[in-house]
Write a protein that binds this DNA or RNA. Structure first.
Lengths: 145, 145
DNA sequence: CGAACAATTGACCATAATTATCAATCTCAT
DNA sequence: ATGAGATTGATAATTATGGTCAATTGTTCG
């Protein structure tokens, strides 16, 4: 089983790109995060290891890490791009609480099946998909009673 | 059957807001658009009728029109908020071609049913949801052969 | 109708996320 | 170790969007 670093290394090499210290640092930090970090989140974390790193480098590194298939961009409509793990994580969708911001990840084979059928019906070759439901979670419903 | 203007009027009145000339103009233009316009698209269209209107007014008007339930924000991840019709239009999802930008609207009761089940399972009260699949449409697949 | 009052507007500024620029520096195959 | 080419960090530029405020407008009520 290849490690995430191996995958990044291989991706970079096969595209004529370099395995820089900064890219490795960003990947290390990203792998340690649990969920849905913004570029700024990652930037601040990486700066604890490397105070000299620039914000643009974090943007650029996450782009490469996505291209390598290790991360996935998600957008919760809050004006900031977020990243989640893609390697060794099953495809999933999101329930987002608009009160407390809690995000629940959900996987549903039946949903995926319907998605495949819909894509086939319209002859689309799908490379990326996203489904989100925004609403109020159980805890917030209790609180507001 | 109430017209979109009646709905806006009623919404405004019941919220202590005013029915201004600009809001009506923005609504008129929005109703004439077919699909997924950005604020800037609408701004340029409204300016043909009212060269004095400000961009901020279009932002503010579309916000109110959304709140009144006549429009829905969509996000295709291209860095610009887009608006689509909500009144007298059934809920739907999107297939987006990443080559030519074509957007196909799809409705699926089975998908909606699964969404309801997933929300219920996690005790979420869903107020808004979105599902998108990005890929290559039939026409673009043919072209690239 | 017309005055009064609160909401809205338009112009402009503020902010925030993201990207472009470019000289200095680093990576890696040889 | 070296050189060609990729990357970086600092900063400026860009873009979408929201805030401010004095001037204007819409609505209500007498």
């Amino acid at each position: 089983m290849k490690s995430a670093k191996d995958i990044l290394r291989r991706y970079l090499k096969s595209n004529g790109l370099l395995y820089s210290r900064q890219r490795e640092q960003v990947l290390d930090i990203f792998l340690k995060t649990e969920k849905h970090s913004t570029i700024n989140d990652l930037y601040e974390l990486v700066r604890k290891k490397n105070t000299k790193i620039g914000l643009a480098t974090v943007y650029r590194s996450m782009k490469v890490i996505c291209d390598a298939g290790l991360a996935r961009e998600t957008d919760f409509g809050d004006g900031a791009r977020r990243y989640e793990h893609k390697y060794k994580h099953q495809h999933h969708h999101h329930l987002v609480c608009i009160k407390c911001g809690r995000i629940v990840e959900i996987a549903s084979p039946r949903l995926e099946q319907i998605q495949r059928q819909l894509a086939k019906k319209h002859d689309f070759t799908v490379s990326r998909d996203t489904m989100k439901m925004f609403g109020i979670c159980r805890a917030c419903k209790r609180k507001s009673k």
